[in-house]
Simulated assay, not measured.
Amino acid sequence: MSERIKPTISGSAETMLQSFYARARYSKSKHNKFYDAKAVELVDKIDYDFSTAARDSTMRKGVIARTVVFDELVKNFIEKNPYCTVVNIACGLDTRFYRMDNGKITWYNLDLPETIAIRNQIFEESGRVSTIGIFALDPAWSKEVKVRGKMLFIIEGLSMYLTAEGNGKILKIIKDNFDNACILMECLAKAWVKKEGIEKSIQQTGSKFVFGADHFEDLGNMTTGYHKIKDDNILRGMELFSSAYRLLALLPIAKKVTQKILIFEKDEQSM
């Protein structure tokens, strides 16, 4: 890839570039918990001003913490279901497949057509890992998932930019079209809704935090046909930056205000 890639995206889609930068920078650190080889290789080949992201430690720490915890959860699922199919909703420039691949899984990266166009320039994916360029709220994407079986759906870095109605549409598409579905859904803590200014690089894109949930129960009617497995969070990922987070994690207020990863499954009777 000799020419630099100039992304033509804005708003919430643009936030994928901040996440990509955060993973590249962290991967270059001496004691990294994970190494994102693609991000390291290609971050300098993207024609984009990352200066605000470089100064935004709040954003970077959040991205790394959630990446570590999501990696743990996805790895555990794949170990229990080695031939599963994973659908990564709003994938951006995520590279988790390359860290998780056991040689047996099938993986779909789903995002907006303009985002997938950029992704395809960088990754050129096919075979057991492929892309779908359709808006996540459009049921048409479900027909592009050809391999079924035990299903894992990752919703990372998306729900906070959608309304409750929008998030509900995604969960309904999954419920209506897939059996054996397990969902890992990242949610902003409700305390941080409308406070996107805490992450300057996100604010710079014009994105707005409009939705949050502290517990599975906060999702309300959108989870009809699902049952709760666990309310998780990214605090153990934050421990990478300071041992103080280990003590902080013991406080109820810490669990309340941190990013959540809600884990739930489709009910058998809904299949």
Rank of each mutant, 00 (worst) to 15 (best):
T115H: 01
I116E: 01
I116D: 00
I116V: 07
I118M: 10
N120C: 04
Q121C: 07
Q121S: 02
I122P: 00
I122Y: 00
F123C: 07
E125V: 03
E125R: 10
E125L: 14
E125H: 10
E125F: 06
E125G: 07
E125C: 04
E125W: 03
S126A: 11
S126Y: 09
S126P: 03
G127S: 05
G127E: 04
G127W: 02
R128C: 05
R128T: 09
V129H: 02
V129A: 05
S130W: 01
S130I: 08
T131Q: 12
I132H: 00
I132M: 02
G133I: 05
G133H: 05
G133S: 03
G133A: 05
G133W: 01
G133T: 04
G133N: 06
G133Q: 07
I134H: 02
F135H: 14
A136G: 03
A136E: 08
D138L: 03
D138W: 06
D138V: 11
P139S: 11
P139C: 11
A140V: 01
W141Y: 03
W141V: 06
W141T: 06
S142N: 06
K143F: 05
K143N: 10
K143A: 15
E144S: 11
E144N: 09
V145T: 07
V145A: 09
V145P: 10
V145N: 10
K146P: 00
K146H: 06
V147A: 15
R148W: 05
G149L: 12
G149A: 09
M151H: 08
M151Y: 08
L152I: 14
L152R: 12
L152H: 11
F153T: 11
F153Y: 09
I154D: 09
I154Q: 08
I155P: 09
I155T: 10
I155C: 13
E156C: 14
E156N: 12
G157Q: 13
G157R: 12
L158K: 06
S159V: 12
S159Q: 08
S159I: 09
